[in-house]
């Protein structure tokens, strides 16, 4: 039944991460309510959702930090519940809160990781030096990590994660709290890792981040996957692009409505929403029609659909589950309801 999440070809390599019907609750509050995931090796997968949607819990289960209450998950071919050490040997995790030892220096943090990955002394020193260089931390390497800025800590955090050369990288909100420049640096780092063949599983509450980085995006809301697909596919889920014309003269508004009978009318604001892809040609058509009708709009705004629309459409309060009906993930209520008991 997992195969219904996403169509797969027979020859596809085994996924880096797959999960079926994952459930978790804390003290009676359901945090994950049966989620299915499938991340092909070498791809970037983004779990997108508002605060409290369950993103971090999903990462914690997949990275063997907590046990799921129901469902099962495989990471790098190992079951997270029965073979956690197999999973741990293949993954690197950078959590939401910095996982560096603040009392020791950046370099000592790196060498600690090298020792824990059982690298020979010389090799460990080489890897540490290379990564410190790559993450622009050479100057700060001799200072205690607690004196680092937020961006530096985050870079050190990821550098430490990479010491073991993980095949699968979990990044829980890697850019939360970073300034715009550090954010772009982080994006570059992630792209470089993906180019080297690393599978990246990231969570984010930023739509542009998912749009920038991810091959596939799952929108997590209230413990369930509300939609899944590429950024393009998700954007198609919401009625998006339009040109909005606003008038101050009611008679001009009246004339314009006659020209666009299919437009959405907002009689109170004297505004028309004309469906449009926002292209130059489409805009010219709108302007030409206005000219030929001899009416003048007071305001013209172009709105192209973006992930924000998808996000708000899917995660707003009171949105019925799977309301969009497009590519809804299979539910496992029958099976997991039994598991829960």
């Amino acid at each position: 039944m997992a195969s219904s999440v996403m169509p797969t070809s027979k020859t596809a390599p085994p996924p880096a991460v797959s999960a079926v019907g994952l459930r978790k609750s804390y003290g009676g509050k359901t945090v994950l309510d049966g989620i299915d995931l499938r991340v092909p090796a070498g791809s970037v997968f983004a779990l997108l959702g508002p605060n409290g949607a369950g993103k971090t819990t999903a990462v914690k289960i997949l990275s063997t930090l907590v046990a799921a209450d129901g469902g099962q998950a495989q990471v790098a071919g190992h079951n997270v519940a029965t073979s956690p050490d197999g999973v741990r040997a293949a993954i690197g995790v950078t959590g939401q809160f910095s996982a560096v030892d603040g009392l020791i220096t950046g370099e000592e943090n790196m060498l600690l990781m090298a020792d824990l990955h059982h690298l020979p002394k010389r090799e460990g020193r080489r890897v540490a030096a290379e990564l410190l260089e790559l993450f622009d931390l050479v100057e700060a390497a001799g200072k205690p990590a607690q004196s680092y800025s937020g961006g530096m800590k985050r870079r050190l955090d990821i550098a430490m994660t990479l010491v073991g050369n993980p095949r699968i990288l979990f990044l829980d909100e890697p850019t939360t709290g970073l300034d715009p420049r550090s954010r772009h640096t982080m994006w570059q780092i992630i792209r470089r890792l993906v180019a080297d063949g690393t599978t990246v599983f990231l969570t984010t509450q930023y739509l542009d981040e998912a749009d920038e980085l991810a091959d596939r995006i799952a929108v997590l809301n209230d413990g369930r996957i509300a939609a899944e697909g590429s950024a393009q596919e998700l954007k198609r889920l919401v009625p998006g692009g339009h040109v909005r014309l606003r008038f101050s003269d009611p008679s001009a508004y009246g004339k314009a409505t006659a020209f666009w009978p299919d437009a959405t009318r907002d009689d109170e604001a004297l505004a028309l929403r004309i469906p449009s892809d926002g292209s130059q040609r489409a805009l010219r058509t709108v302007l030409d029609r206005l000219d030929s009708a001899g009416v003048e709009a007071d305001e013209l705004a172009v709105h192209t659909p973006d992930l924000d629309d998808v996000f708000f459409a899917l995660t707003g309060p009171g949105v019925p589950r799977h309301a969009t009906g497009i590519q809804p993930p299979t539910t496992h209520t029958d099976q997991t309801a039994e598991d829960a008991r």
Partner: peptide, 13 residues
Amino acid sequence: NEGIIARFRTMAI
């Protein structure tokens, strides 16, 4: 309470 303990828990040590 240090984040690094969570890191240790996700490592094959």
